[in-house]
Design a protein around this nucleic acid. Sequence first.
DNA 1: ACCGGATCCGGG
DNA 2: CCCGGATCCGGT
Lengths: 197, 197
Amino acid sequence: MSPVSNESMSNHNSSSELNGMKSGRKRKYACVECRQQKSKCNYDETNPDPCSRCAKKGIHCVIKKDFRRLSKRARAEAIERQVSHLTSHLFHERGGVNLNELYDTYRNPANNSMSPTHLNLLNNLPISKFDHPLFSREQLDILKLEASNPNSTSTTPITPQFNEIQSPRTSRLPSEKLECTPKTLGDVHMTSAEISD
Amino acid sequence: MSPVSNESMSNHNSSSELNGMKSGRKRKYACVECRQQKSKCNYDETNPDPCSRCAKKGIHCVIKKDFRRLSKRARAEAIERQVSHLTSHLFHERGGVNLNELYDTYRNPANNSMSPTHLNLLNNLPISKFDHPLFSREQLDILKLEASNPNSTSTTPITPQFNEIQSPRTSRLPSEKLECTPKTLGDVHMTSAEISD
DNA sequence: ACCGGATCCGGG
DNA sequence: CCCGGATCCGGT
Ligand SMILES: [Zn+2]
Ligand SMILES: [Zn+2]
Ligand SMILES: [Zn+2]
Ligand SMILES: [Zn+2]
């Protein structure tokens, strides 16, 4: 028989036998992995075996009735913007020190006019601008100090922090889960009228 | 056998035999009626013949690859708002006569201080505020005249008009089709950041 | 692996 | 009949 397997039919409806809920069941929830991958799940709640995909990947086939898939693409873009805004705001109110420029400048190994502290700091920074870290107030002060006095050396180690922001909780997201920071507005519909004139 | 029928399995995936596109087909498009009703369509199994549902309803089973279902509820709400706004605008620029109040006042049969013209007019109006009609410039003038001179009687009959508004065409709607007046904004996402401070 | 977007379950 | 929202196809 076919090489793929024999778990023929099942679908979210089916109709013949393996239908599942012939008359009584509630629905046919897909497992977490299949929801994330938006792929077909053949997990059968009357059977403890993992679904085909999970089995194939050797992972824990778990059903979470309220799991929402996490959109990788959207999340990446959101975080990128988030960080870019936060950093620019931060350095604005801290006296106009632009970390992005500072970063790009010092990241260049050809630039040897920087302090050892900065060197150590910047070399441990991730390269992608996706991951621009944030710094504490003290770290920033040190940065600025060093910037105006390139041969001084700080004793306190400067390590970037990848902080997590949390907010109260707002509206309901369309379906996917963008995660990161739930600050949304919940789709402004304005179906018609509203605009009229 | 089961009373429902014998059109077992099909689903938008299936897997075994009638899978359809074993290796070549493209997709399994649902017919217009089934899309509108969000119900399962088995047209691909009945192919030249209409799908089961259309057959049962005795209607023309037609496939329109780009048909979008029309949300009745949303459309009703949109129109309601649309009309409400348009009327208020109209009566604003026509001298501050508020039709809604006028309507509610005169609609009350206990109110006998109105002119026969108004009586006739308002009694022929639909009751639901969903259907607040619009009036022509002449009709409005008559209304205002009568309002200041309650015992005068107009000779021209006043009948409400349910006018249709049309607009250019804009962005893409999420999926459903609200129709009515395509003035939309296409979902303002603002995933995160944008708000930051 | 991801995901746009189409299909269609289950419930009002 | 309607439709919220879950499943999952087919394409990249
Ligand atoms: Zn699964
Ligand atoms: Zn699984
Ligand atoms: Zn159909
Ligand atoms: Zn049909």
